[in-house]
Each structure stands twice: as structure tokens, then as C-alpha cells.
């Protein structure tokens, strides 16, 4: 993902992280069909906006499968509910459980789709920005691991090639021979990594690591736009959470399905929720429209 190419992703990491936590949290906790439908569609649309068809095509079959499993899983194991549809191996399959299964499927689907976007937007440096002040030593260790992993992956390839060069074939043989060669590569890499790590720690010491009062710098600045975003999204989420807890949006599945009456207030809350779920997409689209207008003006 190119840095800041997405309007929502360019908000301050604290806002972005908080948004994902709360949206996923609401989706998981309040099993209301409308909430989940909106969340699912919002997540799908934003994920599509970020990774396009090419990215989604790889994910969707698995996602569908998981959702179908979730939909079937509940009626098979859950026999509560008053409306029996039929019996399967002496167990009643109830309408309530079937509906509940589909609601659960929506929940699973929307959570996974939100994580697709999360993985795109919430890159490691943003994560560090959120937690750098809270857990500085861990955050630094985390940044170092991120530094080492690509380096080690490249080194593993070099080691495998070097082993071939002196007549040790890494890629052939039965599974045990390959596991043994793999272990040898890992072992050579560990020796290399640990011995060279002495330099790394010298470099840290040379630049004053370990002095008291270390600060945590990050490259993100808190702007007015972040405050506005935080207030708008936070306010919207607060409305939904309070309304749900207060019972404005209520969904009971057992023993019988019971949704809250379609009062205007409930529709209003759903509307707010929809705005929250679609906010990242709308922000992105708004910026694209601006770009289009630039292009047509020039």
C-alpha cells in the first residue's frame, strides 16, 4: 500500500486504530441483522476500494466458505427455538437457529472483511505510533523484528544457495532430509544473526540507548482534520453503542425471533451506523472526485 494514498488511512493512526477496534467490536457484540448487514456491506465496499477485485478475488472464496460453514454450524448444533422446520438424525432443526446461523455468518464475514482493510491501512509504523508511548521497549523490539524479518528471509535464500554451491542440496530428498536441511539453514542463520546482533547492540549503545527518559518519536502529526474525524466517528459510534445497550436496537432469536419495532429512532441509529461504516469509503471517494475535478479543470 502506498503511503497515504487512501484518505482515511492518512488520518492519525490513533483515530484509525480506534475506528477499527470499535467497528469490529460493535459488529461482534450486537448481533442485529441490520447492524451486521450494514457493517458487512460497508466492510466489503471499503475492502473492494482498497484492494480492488484483484485483491478480493483471492479472499472471497474462502470467506464465502467460512460464512456458509457458520450458517450451517448453528442449526446443526443449536436446537433451541420454537419453530421446528424438520428433524435431522432425531434433532430438531429450528427456523430460529437457521436465521441465527445466517446472522452469525454475516458477523464472521464482516469481521474478516474489516480485517482485510485493517491489514491494508494499519501498517506496522502506525501501530508503533499508537503504542510507542505506552510500551516503548516492546515497541522498539517490535520495530527491530520488522527490520530483521525481511533481512532474514533474504539471508535464508542466500544460505540455501551457498549450501548448494558446496554440494549440499537443500531442496531435494524425502521430507526428513528436507526438514534436516531446513534446520541447517535456520541454524546457520541463527549463528549469523546472533553474532551480528552484537554490532546492532553496539550501534544502539553508541546512540545512547539505555539512557533514562527515552522519548518515542513518530512521523505522524495530529492535525485538525484528525480531531474532526475522531469527533465525528467517535460520536457516531457512541450513538450506536448507547442505542444498542439501551435497547433501541434489539434482536432476540430464542426462543422466538423478536426484532424491535421499526420505530423512526431505530432507523435513525441504523442511519448513523451506516454513515460510520461507509465513512472511510466516502472519504476516499470524495478525494477521488476532487482529483477528477482537478484533472478536468486543467
Amino acid at each position: 500500500m502506498v503511503r497515504n494514498s487512501d484518505a482515511f488511512g492518512s488520518l492519525h493512526p490513533v483515530v484509525v486504530f480506534g475506528y477499527f477496534v470499535l467497528v469490529v467490536g460493535v459488529s461482534v457484540v450486537f448481533l442485529h441483522p441490520l447492524i451486521l448487514t450494514v457493517s458487512f456491506v460497508g466492510a466489503l465496499a471499503y475492502a473492494f476500494y482498497l484492494v480492488r477485485w484483484a485483491g478480493l478475488r483471492k479472499l472471497l472464496p474462502g470467506l464465502m466458505l467460512l460464512m456458509v460453514i457458520a450458517a450451517l454450524f448453528n442449526p446443526v448444533f443449536n436446537h433451541r427455538g420454537v419453530t421446528t422446520l424438520f428433524y435431522w438424525e432425531d434433532n430438531p432443526i429450528t427456523l430460529e437457529a437457521v436465521v441465527y446461523g445466517w446472522v452469525a455468518a454475516l458477523m464472521v464475514g464482516s469481521v474478516l472483511l474489516w480485517f482485510v482493510s485493517y491489514n491494508q491501512v494499519m501498517t506496522s509504523d502506525k501501530f508503533l505510533c499508537v503504542f510507542g508511548h505506552v510500551v516503548p521497549a516492546l515497541s522498539l523490539t517490535f520495530a527491530m523484528v520488522l527490520r530483521f524479518v525481511p533481512r532474514y528471509l533474504a539471508q535464508a535464500k542466500r544460505i540455501a544457495a551457498a549450501q548448494r554451491g558446496i554440494g549440499r542440496d537443500v531442496a531435494s530428498g524425502n521430507w526428513y532430509a528436507r526438514a534436516r536441511h531446513g534446520a541447517a539453514v535456520l541454524s546457520i542463520m541463527l549463528t549469523w544473526a546472533l553474532e551480528n546482533a552484537v554490532d546492532t547492540s553496539d550501534s544502539m549503545l553508541a546512540r545512547g540507548y539505555g539512557l533514562p527518559g527515552r522519548s518515542a518519536y513518530n512521523d505522524f502529526r495530529w492535525r485538525e482534520r484528525d480531531l474532526m474525524g475522531a469527533l465525528a466517528l467517535g460520536g457516531g459510534l457512541l450513538v450506536v453503542i448507547v442505542a444498542s445497550v439501551a435497547g433501541v436496537l434489539r434482536a432476540e432469536y430464542f426462543p422466538a425471533i423478536e426484532l424491535n419495532p421499526a420505530v423512526p429512532l431505530a432507523w435513525l441509529v441504523i442511519g448513523v451506523w451506516a454513515l460510520v461504516c461507509f465513512a472511510p469509503l466516502l472519504l476516499g471517494l470524495k478525494e477521488e472526485v476532487t482529483w477528477r475535478s482537478f484533472r478536468s479543470n486543467s
Binding site: 510500551v135 516503548p136 521497549a137 516492546l138 522498539l140 523490539t141 527491530m144 523484528v145 527490520r147 530483521f148 524479518v149 533481512r151 532474514y152 528471509l153 535464508a156 521430507w175 528436507r178 526438514a179 531446513g182 535456520l186 542463520m189 541463527l190 544473526a193 546472533l194 546482533a197 552484537v198 546492532t200 547492540s201 544502539m204 549503545l205 540507548y209 539505555g210
Partner: peptide, 29 residues
């Protein structure tokens, strides 16, 4: 966090973690 790990300790923990992650990411079969 509380024991304010020394540079070498942080490095070794990062190395071992990265080796484990690389093992999880790169390894075969």
C-alpha cells in the same frame, strides 16, 4: 517494560523473534 531491558537483551529477543517469524513464514512444505 519494567526491567528496562538493556540493548543486548532487546536485540537478542528481537533476533529470536525474527528467526521464529522467518521460520513460520519461509519454511517449506
Amino acid at each position: 517494560e519494567g526491567r528496562k531491558p538493556a540493548a543486548r537483551e532487546v536485540v537478542i529477543i528481537a533476533v529470536m523473534t525474527a528467526i521464529a517469524v522467518t521460520g513460520r513464514a519461509a519454511f517449506f512444505m
